[in-house]
């Protein structure tokens, strides 16, 4: 076989593999959207779920998913940012840093059911939080932290060493070089990391079944007091998310239209994640421009 033939074969194989990946993605997305979108309506998005009758919606579940995501990011982002900066900029190259990195890796490969049960025992039972958004957010932080830390560390590492030298040689302190130069340059990468981890948080179900719970009590969306039990912002109320709702409908759903609602909810989940991706990407570009050029 001459080199031209082998080159053609290799190219063909690579194209075929890519086509397979795209094919699977298109098939999944297409199937979910095709079967789900017909069930999405304004009524579906804005009404509460029904346990026994047909015609329920996903309003509370959708909101719970968003709220949980926001809360998770509020908890995990500062921690991940700090540890990402430490690992990228300060950590000496020794066994201890290696240990931290390994720990982060292990954390990221924990099965979500295990994290969920752990959260259940520690937060829900031991700390008396009950099934609550807060317990769910802390459990999700466990997933989020490794991904986010890793992506922040990598985004910082991607900033050229020349930039650090430029800052230091100008008489900036190390901290000022990091916060004033390296971090702004890494913002698009960090945002991509947040989006990726957010997608995972949004779709997570197993860990939430035991922490945030499977019930969506009726809440008052006009009540902005987060300590009021009826408020939609109360972090200590149980909250069934969209992904948990889909799981529940498919395992023990008794509404006559369980299949339809589950398809619709799946489509909503996908669409929201896609929208979130687009929005965050635009936000990333906008922020980068804002931070790197005056006026």
């Amino acid at each position: 076989m001459n080199s031209k033939t082998s080159n053609n074969i290799a190219t063909g194989v690579i194209y075929a593999l890519v086509a397979a990946v795209i094919g699977i993605l298109v098939f999944l997305l297409g199937y979910i959207l095709w079967t789900g979108i017909p069930h999405i309506s304004w009524h579906f998005l804005t009404s509460a779920a029904q346990s026994f009758r047909a015609g329920g919606g996903v309003r509370d579940q959708l909101f719970n998913s968003m709220y949980l995501l926001v809360l998770t990011l509020i908890i995990s982002f500062p921690i991940a940012l700090g540890s990402g900066i430490y690992l990228s900029e300060y950590a000496p190259n020794n066994w201890f840093t290696g240990l931290i990195r390994t720990a982060v890796e292990v954390l990221s490969s924990l099965p979500s059911v295990v994290v969920g049960l752990f959260g259940y025992l520690l937060f829900v039972i031991q700390f008396n939080m009950g099934f609550s958004i807060l317990a769910g957010a802390i459990a999700l932080t466990f997933f989020n932290l490794p991904l986010l830390t890793r992506s922040i560390e990598e985004s910082l590492q991607d900033v050229s060493q020349l930039q650090r030298e430029a800052g230091l040689s100008l008489g900036l302190s190390r901290w000022k070089t990091i916060t004033g130069i390296v971090l702004p340059a890494a913002v698009p990468g960090i945002l991509t990391g947040i989006i990726l981890s957010a997608g995972r948080v949004f779709g997570e179900a197993a860990a939430l079944i035991y922490t945030a719970g499977q019930s969506a009590p009726t809440v008052n969306y006009g009540d902005w007091n987060p300590v009021d039990p009826a408020s939609f912002l109360n972090p200590l109320r149980p909250a069934e998310t969209l992904a948990v709702h889909i799981w529940k409908l498919n395992t023990e759903g008794v509404t006559p239209d369980a299949a339809a609602i589950s398809s619709g909810a799946s489509a909503v989940l996908i669409v929201v994640i896609l929208l979130f991706n687009l929005l965050a990407r635009m936000l990333g570009n906008w922020m980068y421009k804002k931070m790197t050029a005056t006026r």
Binding site: L162, A166, G167, P184, A185, T292
Partner: peptide, 11 residues
């Protein structure tokens, strides 16, 4: 001043 031009990614 370094070998490779290294302006900050600012204006």
């Amino acid at each position: 001043v370094f070998q490779q031009p290294n302006p900050f990614p600012f204006s």
